[in-house]
Simulated assay, not measured.
Amino acid sequence: MQRPDPPADTAVAVVFFRPTAEQVARIVERFAGRMTVLVYDNGGIPPDALARLQGAEGLTRLGEGRNRGIAAALNALAEAAVAAGYARLFLLDQDADATPETARRLGDALDRAAGAEPPPALVGPAPAPKPGHKAPIYPPRPGVPPREHLRPVEFLATSGSLVDLAAFAQVGPFREDFFIDAVDLEWCFRAWARGRSCWMDPGTAIPHSVGRGTIRARFLPVAMPDQPLFRMAVYVRNTAYGWRLPHVPARWKLKQAAYLPLQIGLYWSRHRFAPRVLARLLAALAQGLAGRLGRPADAPP
């Protein structure tokens, strides 16, 4: 049976940071030779995997092997896709279990959303379960009705999303001073504020996870990703800074204001109430409230 052709107007964008050789091989095997693949090297690609990338058909590697953060990588990939004449960009991280068929189905979904008001900026898949990890939840956008079996959502993860590059130009680039966490959340809220919309296709699902596991409260129905300390600190900082942004809705700010102290407490508990952990998170909270962003001093190179 012949496989359907992938969309010709779409390039694939993948950000690599310390991937395994297997993760690199999966991207090459699934996409190289079928779609244009743009890869950003944020560092740590094994030498044998790097050689495989360099020999892959239709694959372009960007970046210098230094960790510039997810936002800077995504912006560079979007710029390269626009320069190459593509109208859409299928964003993936190294863990994403996606295929050209996923890109085609999301392209069909973006076409179905084209008549929505406000017009779409991106469409993404529903999160499929992944053992040992907490799947993300994408809250529905109040006041916007579903369309063509698609659901309007406040935000989606960048990985697995199909972005309309004309909308990307209107909304603006991802915030590089966020470096990594909440980059997608802030961009989607900005898209809604600038007259664009974000949609989830329940008929398309890929596994998605954050961190290295899940932290669960003992007596409350609360779960959160378990991440390295620098990641958790950046999340706290960027969340606190989001309270300063006018395009982030008050309903989301109130929810996070209640939830963030609980997350800090759970994370601190997981790390046996180590004073240095609490000090790092409280310092990050203060940085966010004061608007001191940028690359974290303890971010891996």
Rank of each mutant, 00 (worst) to 15 (best):
R88G: 01
F168P: 00
A250V: 11
G288W: 08
P120H: 04
P202D: 07
P202Q: 09
P228N: 03
Q227W: 03
V277G: 01
R66S: 14
M224F: 12
D298L: 14
A233K: 05
G143H: 06
V24S: 05
E57T: 11
Q170F: 00
L185Y: 15
D164R: 06
W192F: 08
A157M: 12
P300R: 12
L278E: 00
G55P: 00
A274Y: 01
L266Y: 10
R61Y: 06
A72Y: 09
M232A: 13
Y86S: 08
G203E: 09
T239C: 09
L156V: 07
P249N: 06
A167L: 08
R66Q: 14
W192C: 02
P146H: 10
D201G: 01
L185C: 03
A80E: 11
G33P: 12
A223V: 02
Q94H: 11
I45T: 05
D41P: 06
K255C: 01
P127F: 07
F174N: 05
G55T: 00
M200A: 04
A284D: 10
P261L: 10
H208I: 03
H247N: 07
G124N: 09
A299Y: 10
L110D: 05
L293S: 07
H247Y: 15
A81S: 11
H149V: 12
A128W: 13
R196L: 11
G63F: 03
F179Y: 15
P275E: 11
A258Q: 01
W268E: 00
Q54W: 09
A81E: 10
D226G: 04
F16S: 08
A51N: 09
L150M: 05
P129R: 04
D164E: 08
D184K: 08
R151T: 15
Y241R: 10
Q2S: 11
P6E: 04
A284F: 06
P173M: 05
F179K: 11
P249C: 10
A109H: 03
Q54R: 15
A217Q: 10
S159Y: 10
A240Q: 07
A11T: 13
L77P: 02
R34N: 02
R196H: 15
A233I: 02
S159Q: 12
I264C: 02
T20W: 06
I70E: 08
S161K: 03
I137L: 15
S269P: 00
D184Q: 10
A240P: 00
N67R: 04
P136D: 08
R218Q: 14
G291N: 12
A114T: 09
P207N: 13
E154F: 03
I70T: 14
A83T: 08
W187P: 02
R34Y: 01
A121S: 13
R105Q: 07
G65M: 10
I137S: 14
W192D: 01
D184I: 12
A279D: 15
A121F: 15
L285E: 04
P131E: 04
A49F: 02
W243M: 12
R3A: 06
N67W: 05
S209E: 07
E148Y: 02
G294L: 05
V163C: 03
S161W: 01
P136C: 06
A250C: 01
V234L: 11
T158L: 14
A113K: 06
Y138K: 14
G115F: 09
D48K: 15
E57D: 11
V171S: 04
I180N: 07
Y259W: 13
V14S: 00
S159T: 14
